[in-house]
Amino acid sequence: MMTTATLDRTVGRQAGAPARGVVGRVIDRVGGGLVQTLLILIALFWLVPTLGLLVVSLRGETYNNASGWWTVFTEPAQLTLENYSNLLATGFTASFWNTVFITVPATVLVIGIAAMAAYAFAWIDFRGRDALFLVVVGLLVVPIQIALIPIAKLYGALNIFGSIASVVLFHVAFGLPFAIFLLRNFFAGIPRELLEAARMDGAGEWKIFLTVVFPLAKPAVASLGIFQFLWVWNDLLVALVFANTDNQPMTKALQSQMRQFGTNVDILAPGAFLSLIIPLVLFFAFQRYFVQGMLAGSVK
């Protein structure tokens, strides 16, 4: 380090390499402090909006109309659970359960159906396999808008329009390309020897799939599960089109209150917070799977 520093000073700026001596290190030190401060500010920037939602949801209507939520730090007496009890009295719980009844089957079905397809793509040789898989890769980016009108018509013909099943089915179909892509790539990495050993032992493909491949793929299944769960839980558009009022999830229930935002803050804030608390808990619990899935499927 010393020699390079001396060298720099002698060679000087002609070489295009500014000196990195004591001065440089001092700058580094000061810069470190600057970086810390900057990142603290950025972190606040990212935290404050959500914190604001939480505080607003915990303040009475009169306070929310009169002053900013940050006044709560000087006047903690503003906090109350009243908004939440009012919200639960309006029947918001029903939409909470609708969200659950949509999300859980949509997640489980996608994992099951995609795992089977991914197994075929990874480990069964058939003609046109690679071309078919490329089609799946292509379908990754298809916007769901393309299917709204045709599927609405289809559901009308099948007489399931508005039901929870119709929403679930739509989410499963549009979750499949990503799910197949993710799982197939993971399955393909399982050592061939494992499968061949099982085959030599006389296990059928179905048994190999269930007892060898699927258990090995737990990390990928977890990634996929958390992704699909969040995607369905947080969806608004599909619910907006296909779910009727009885079957609407939280996102749609909240959306219907948005028209009078100012007067509905005492419903919207606790509702929005309730809707994000479960995804947030899952996210913190399983974030490494979330990140893995994201890295593996970043073409989406």
Binding site: I42, A43, W46, P49, T50, G52, L53, V56, W69, L230, W233, N234, D235, L236, T251, L254, Q255, M258, F261, V265, L268, A269, G271, A272, F273, S275, L276, P279, L280, L282, F283, Q287, F290
Partner: peptide, 18 residues
């Protein structure tokens, strides 16, 4: 910074309306 990824865009919308 990563946390908003888990929050629905609907809830994010309410957050930013505030």
């Amino acid at each position: 910074v990563f946390m908003p990824m888990a929050v629905s865009l609907m809830a994010s919308g309410v957050i930013f309306r505030l």
